[in-house]
C-alpha cells in the first residue's frame, strides 16, 4: 500500500476510534505539530460525514418509494388520511 493510502488508513483508524489510547495520543500530538495532517483529518472527517448524509438521503428515497406504493392502496390510504380529517 503506498504511503498516502497508509496515511488515509491511519486517519481512518483515528476517526473510527480504532486506535489504542497510547497510539491515539501520539497521533493527536502529531496533529498538533503538523497542520497538513490536521487538514487531512478534517477533510477525511467531512468525507465520512458526507457518506452518512448521502446514505441517509438514499434510504429516505427508498422509504418514500414504499410509502408512495402503499398510498396507492385504497385501504392503506384511507387508514392514514382519515387520522388527519
Amino acid at each position: 500500500m503506498r504511503k498516502q493510502l497508509a496515511e488515509i488508513r491511519e486517519i481512518d483508524r483515528y476517526l473510527l476510534q480504532e486506535m489504542t489510547a497510547p497510539v491515539r495520543l501520539v497521533f493527536q500530538a502529531r496533529m498538533l505539530v503538523a497542520p497538513a495532517l490536521r487538514e487531512k483529518v478534517r477533510y477525511q472527517r467531512k468525507a465520512l460525514q458526507l457518506l452518512f448524509w448521502l446514505a441517509r438521503e438514499e434510504k429516505r428515497a427508498q422509504l418514500d418509494i414504499v410509502f408512495q406504493r402503499l398510498m396507492k392502496e385504497d385501504h392503506f390510504h384511507q387508514s392514514i388520511t382519515s387520522i388527519f380529517k
Binding site: 500500500m1 498516502q4 493510502l5 488515509i8 488508513r9 481512518d12 487531512k40 477533510y43 477525511q44 467531512k46 468525507a47 458526507l50 457518506l51
Partner: peptide, 14 residues
Amino acid sequence: VQKYKCLEKVREQI
C-alpha cells in the same frame, strides 16, 4: 486498497 483509494478521491473532491 480500493476503499482507501475511494476515500482519498472523495476527500480530495471536498
